[in-house]
């Protein structure tokens, strides 16, 4: 089977400082990859390199495009990359306000990607927006309200709806539950798990919270100082970590 995403030797430096170094892995269709590690270990840097928000200093991010098959997204033209990021890719930011238009209604937020890819029937766009609000457990009666009137958990769910409405194949998430109350986190994780399963999504989820990856990820990469120090099936890595740092990471969480 062709990997949906094939990451090869991704390296990003900030001056002399290493963001992430020589990261390689394959992600197959329908798979969820978790990336864990302490703060500053390079998770967001890696994610942003993969999603085209940062230009890596070295390496390839090969995506199996619908049109041309596996293509290096680092070297593809900017219009092509931007098109990917509003069709086949989705990016869920930690802070909903980075991923939403706060001055636009919930319906407009969800509809934007549809309009960006050329949908021109108001009734259809609105219907799909209402449908997606319900799917992320937001009352469709809130469709004309601005996100500023939503709770943190609702904003995050709205961001997810806005991203998934065009049926992307790959979702990047950076600490999607960070900053939310524990009970709100649990509901969001349930929702994401359901959507991933129903839509057959592939996803890469960055988190420092091992409970998140335990619930969502099929496979896991552990990062430290920009390097991947251990990778494997989630249960395997969490139950039987090989690297001393992974052991520390797992045990510290298990004690909590």
């Amino acid at each position: 089977m062709t990997p949906l995403l094939s990451v090869k030797g991704i390296t990003k430096r900030y001056g002399a400082h290493i963001g992430c170094a020589d990261v390689s892995f394959d992600l197959y269709p329908g798979e969820v990859m978790g990336i864990v590690g302490e703060s500053g270990s390079g998770k967001s840097t890696l994610l942003n390199c993969m999603a085209g928000h940062l230009v890596p200093d070295a390496g390839q991010v090969v995506f199996d495009t619908r049109v041309a098959g596996p293509t290096d997204t680092v070297t593809m033209s900017e219009p092509e990359r931007r098109m990917l990021s509003r069709t086949d890719w989705a990016f869920v930011h930690q802070h909903a306000r980075d991923g939403l238009r706060m001055g636009v209604s919930a319906g407009g937020n969800v509809g934007e990607r549809l309009m960006a890819v050329g949908e021109r029937h108001y009734g259809d766009i609105r219907g799909k927006a209402a449908d997606w609000l319900e799917r992320v457990e937001i009352d469709a009666g809130r469709i004309d309200d601005r996100p500023t009137t939503f709770s943190g958990g609702m904003q995050q769910r709205l961001q997810i709806a806005r991203n998934l409405v065009t049926g992307p194949r790959l979702v990047f998430m950076d600490e999607p539950t960070g900053g939310l109350d524990v009970s709100v986190q649990a509901r969001l994780l349930d929702l994401v798990r359901g959507l991933v399963r129903d839509m057959g999504l592939s996803a890469i989820i960055v988190t420092h919270d091992l409970a998140v990856v335990r619930l969502l990820a099929d496979r896991l990469m552990v990062m430290k100082s920009g390097h991947v120090i251990e990778a494997g099936l989630t249960d395997q890595v969490l139950d039987d970590p090989q690297h001393a740092y992974s052991q520390l990471l797992v045990s510290s969480v298990l004690q909590v």
Partner: peptide, 18 residues
């Protein structure tokens, strides 16, 4: 430059919904 004009329709969408 990239002909990304979806936003113009977001404005018209907001008009109609309002």
């Amino acid at each position: 430059s990239l002909e990304e004009y979806g936003l113009m329709h977001v404005k018209l969408y907001e008009d109609i919904s309002c």
